[in-house]
Simulated scan of single mutants.
Amino acid sequence: MLDIDHFTYGWLTPVLAYVMSVVGSLLALRCMVRARNGSHGGWVVTGAVALGGTGIWVMHFIAMLGFSVQDSTVRFNVPITLLSAIIAIGVVWLGLSIVVHRHGEAFALIIGGTITGLGVAAMHYSGMYAMRTDAAVRYDPWIVLLSIVIAVVAATAALWFALHVEGILATIGAALIMGVAVCGMHYTGMFAMSAHVSDHMHAPSGAQPAQLLTPLIVAVSMATMLMLFQVGITDVDEPTSAGFAASTRAGSGRLAHRVRAGVSTRTISPPRPSNAATATGDLSAHSSARWEKWKYRFRSRSTSMAPIPVMPSSRAQSMTR
């Protein structure tokens, strides 16, 4: 069995691969924050390009730059390499679209994570199939299965993060975790590979790794950086705790203003009596009016009554006779 070296250039390629995976994941998560706020289509596509193109595909082939086989030549098939990039972006877009349009339902998250994870595994092994070498390559099926399980779990976690992460610190933390998951899946799949000497292998044809991968990686990385500057990592309208507190303070201010306005209005306006008070006042006024009426009648009678005339006694005696 031939020795396989995954770190030909030391820690340069794995560290750079991890950094690009984190950057792609960070950009994808920021795009998904905007997609959750209503504008689905464009931001979902941008997030798929960021996560599938940079976070997964660029990470994979940066790590492949440090791959070498003892006493063997490594080449890459250009069409299959490009096809692997399309697969990565396509499956991530499909998974994001499923969970966004289904509003993060658990069933949609499982389906989307499974499809995306299987697609990421397909991207990885199609990229490995694009590699040509004059050694016989074999894979341990159990480690391959483990890498697929890691891919599905990582994809499901990535979709969950895309739906629930809010705030820049939480986004950075989620991107760091996603970078670990993507790199872990890649190197698990790579360790499933073994190379053996074969007398029936011919010299491989295709492009050298540096000639093919370096321009592609640089182009995709530059596009990712431009998208990152365009989207920004803080200029996003999202329901953070600070924003919620600000909106709460604003609502409290409006309520206090309304309360003050009501108090001032009540201060200026005379208080309206209640029903009981109104009834009592009406009864008192009615009683007073009746009393005044009776007083007026009594006075009128007193003044209109004439005195009874008194006859002289002599005239009264004559009338009796």
Results as ranks from 00 to 15, higher is better:
Asp5Cys: 05
Phe7Gly: 03
Val15His: 03
Leu16Arg: 05
Ala17Lys: 06
Tyr18Ala: 08
Tyr18Leu: 08
Val23Asn: 02
Gly24Glu: 07
Leu26Pro: 00
Leu27Phe: 12
Arg30Phe: 06
Arg30Asp: 11
Met32Ile: 11
Val33Gln: 15
Arg34Lys: 15
Ser39Leu: 12
Ser39Ile: 13
Gly41His: 10
Ala50Glu: 04
Gly53Ala: 07
Ile56Ser: 04
Trp57Thr: 01
Val58Leu: 05
Met59Trp: 08
Met64Pro: 01
Gly66Pro: 09
Val69Tyr: 04
Asp71Leu: 07
Ala85Leu: 15
Ile86Ala: 13
Ile86Asp: 04
Val92Gln: 03
Trp93His: 11
Leu94Cys: 06
Ile98Ala: 02
Val100Trp: 01
Val100Gln: 09
Arg102Val: 03
His103Pro: 05
Glu105Arg: 14
Ala108Gln: 07
Ile110Asn: 07
Gly112Ser: 12
Thr114Glu: 04
Ile115Gly: 02
Val120Gly: 10
Gly127Leu: 01
Met128Gly: 04
Ala130Val: 05
Thr133Glu: 02
Asp134Cys: 05
Arg138Tyr: 13
Tyr139Asn: 12
Trp142His: 11
Leu145Asn: 12
Ser147Asp: 02
Ser147Tyr: 03
Ser147Lys: 01
Ile148Val: 13
Val149His: 07
Ala151Asn: 08
Ala151Gly: 10
Val153Gly: 04
Ala155Asn: 02
Leu159Cys: 02
Trp160Ser: 11
His164Asp: 12
Gly167Asp: 02
Ile168Asp: 04
Leu169Trp: 08
Ala170Val: 10
Ala170Cys: 07
Ala174Ser: 08
Leu176Ala: 09
Ile177Asn: 00
Met178Asp: 08
Val180Phe: 15
Ala181Met: 10
Cys183Glu: 12
Cys183Asp: 11
Gly184Gln: 09
Met185Leu: 13
Met185Lys: 07
Phe191Lys: 13
Ala192Gly: 13
His196Trp: 05
His202Pro: 00
Ala203Ile: 09
Ala210Met: 14
Ala210Cys: 06
Leu212Lys: 02
Leu216Gly: 15
Leu216Thr: 13
Val218Thr: 13
Ser221Met: 07
Ala223Asp: 03
Met225Cys: 09
Phe229Gln: 06
Glu238Ile: 06
Thr240Lys: 07
Ser241Trp: 10
Ala242Thr: 12
Phe244Arg: 12
Phe244Gly: 03
Ala245Leu: 12
Ser247Tyr: 14
Gly253Tyr: 06
Arg254Ser: 11
Ala256Asn: 10
His257Tyr: 14
His257Met: 09
Arg258Cys: 03
Val259Trp: 15
Pro270Ser: 09
Pro273Leu: 14
Ser274Phe: 06
Ser274Tyr: 01
Asn275Pro: 09
Thr280Cys: 01
Thr280Trp: 08
Asp282His: 11
Ser284Phe: 11
Ala289Leu: 07
Arg290Trp: 15
Trp291Leu: 14
Lys293Asp: 15
Trp294Ser: 12
Phe298Trp: 11
Phe298Ser: 11
Arg299Phe: 06
Met305Ser: 03
Met305Val: 13
Pro307Ala: 14
Met311Ala: 14
Ser314Asp: 15
Ser314Val: 13
Gln317Met: 10
Gln317Ile: 04
Ser318Cys: 00
Met319Ile: 14
Thr320Val: 14
